[in-house]
């Protein structure tokens, strides 16, 4: 479904990603692992079109999306839940969800999808008139996931969804992700939390200093001592 080959990208200075290639197959939940500064967020932002790669290609369903603008990539069903949630802080929960469904492909299904999001996170329905900025961190993360679901994603990418959350909320988020995956949604999950990710991911990719260090199924990665080393940045 998603094929990345030979990706080189970064900001000013030396590249953050150096020749990264990886595949995500339809229906999979793939964990993207690695230490801080390994290049995980850069990779996701390249896929979303927020960063222009210097070389390499990103294909989605066979189509080259490397040079598309962020909004065009969302229209194709590749959607990111960004790190730090990036909500619209002074708007209500409902407005945030409606904005997830504002683009022309998502608009017709908006009413139906809101019900699905409320079923996934009942807490959001209770808080629907509340301003997003006043929610707790965990509720905000639920809203960020719900808002992304409103766009009608076919590939959902999440950047550190457990960051800074209370354990109870982490569980709720991951339970939701597993349920979405079982319903057929393809997920690319960037996480610091190694065990949690390997619990629900079928496969994992470990990035190390901008390169793919290890690729394998969850059990293999768990057994491989290099996985933990990569985490500690050794």
């Amino acid at each position: 479904m998603l094929e990345i080959s030979g990706l080189v990208a970064g900001y000013a200075g030396p590249p953050v990603l150096r020749d990264v290639s990886l595949d995500v197959r339809a229906g999979e939940l793939v964990g993207l692992l690695g230490a801080n500064n390994a290049g995980k967020s850069t990779l996701i932002n390249c896929i979303s079109g927020l960063i222009r790669p210097r070389a390499g290609t990103i294909r989605f369903d066979g189509e080259d999306i490397t040079r598309l603008k962020p909004d065009a990539i969302v229209l194709r069903g590749v959607v990111q839940v960004p790190e730090g949630r990036q909500l619209f802080p002074r708007m209500s929960v409902l407005d945030n969800l409606l904005l997830g469904g504002t683009n022309r492909t998502a608009r017709p299904a908006r009413v139906r999808r809101i019900e699905q999001v409320y079923a996934l996170f009942p807490r959001l329905e209770e808080r629907k008139t509340q301003t997003a900025g006043t929610l707790s961190g965990g509720e905000q993360q639920m809203l960020a996931v719900g808002r992304a679901m409103m766009t009608g994603p076919r590939l959902l990418m999440l950047d550190e969804p457990s960051l800074g959350l209370a354990p109870l909320f982490v569980q709720a988020i991951f339970r939701a992700l597993r349920a979405l995956n079982e319903d057929g949604l393809t997920i690319l999950l960037v996480e610091q939390n190694l065990n949690l990710t390997l619990d629900c991911a079928a496969r994992g990719v470990v990035l190390e200093r901008g390169q793919v260090a290890i690729v394998g199924d969850a059990a293999t990665l768990r057994a491989d001592p290099r996985t933990r080393q990569a985490y500690l940045g050794l």
């Binding site: 979303s48 927020l50 603008k69 962020p70 909004d71 969302v74 229209l75 959607v79 990111q80 960004p82 990036q86 909500l87 619209f88 802080p89 002074r90 708007m91 904005l99 997830g100 504002t102 683009n103 492909t105 998502a106 808002r147 992304a148 766009t151």
Partner: peptide
């Protein structure tokens, strides 16, 4: 409020 997030919503 958040141009980057707006772009990620397909705007």
């Amino acid at each position: 409020q958040n141009p980057r997030a707006a772009a990620l919503m397909g705007i």
